[in-house]
Amino acid sequence: MVQFNLEQRELTIKIVYYGPALSGKTTNLQAVHHLLVPDIRGRLMVLNTSDDRTLFFDLMPVFFKTETGFKVKVKLFTAPGQVMHNSTRRIILQGADGVVFVADSQRNQIAANNDSWRGMANNLKLNGMDIKQLPVVIQFNKRDLPDVRSDAEIDEVAQRGNEPVFKAVAINGQGVLETLEGILRLTWQTLNNNYQLGQKLRLGEDVFIDNLLKKNTIPLPPLTGSGGLLS
């Protein structure tokens, strides 16, 4: 849940990347880390096991100061994908203001995507949150792999649901910032509707987005993700 402190003039928003194991959540964060200019983001904290799987979570803050001196911070978290870490996933989801659901585009991962979504809905419920009230975008990652659901198929399923859908190849940064922008806009709109943040901070949606997505010009190095796809 957004932390809004008028006294200290701070706003902290929490975005969680959720999805099945090895769908590319850590890779998304690694790409965001490389694609944004260093002075608006903190270090990328990756807590991996010895075999490069996410143990607890990954965390990267993105922040800026508004013209009126308000500190705006967005904390990007990834939840661990492996089945056994369910209680950690629930803790990570606590107080989330928006969720990026990173689905694996491969046909053989459809069931894993669905299981993960159901698990997320259940975890949100156990946290006293309602998935229908929470801003969620869906990213179909790994578009570069063979035997993935076709673009037409994804466009069709995107039409059917309420959640904005993005296509990505996180490992080369493709679609990653678009997805982040999607969730940031949706989250801002929801928070603005609920708490009139724009009025309180004297901040518009576009300025909010532009400040958080200042792009780096350095080319993206090869990424490996927590699942070590290239390792």
């Binding site: 957004v2 932390q3 929490k14 965390l59 803790i91 606590q94």
Partner: peptide
Amino acid sequence: AESTGAPDTSALQ
């Protein structure tokens, strides 16, 4: 000063 609800139950918050 102004809270929007959920308690800070986790160290993450």
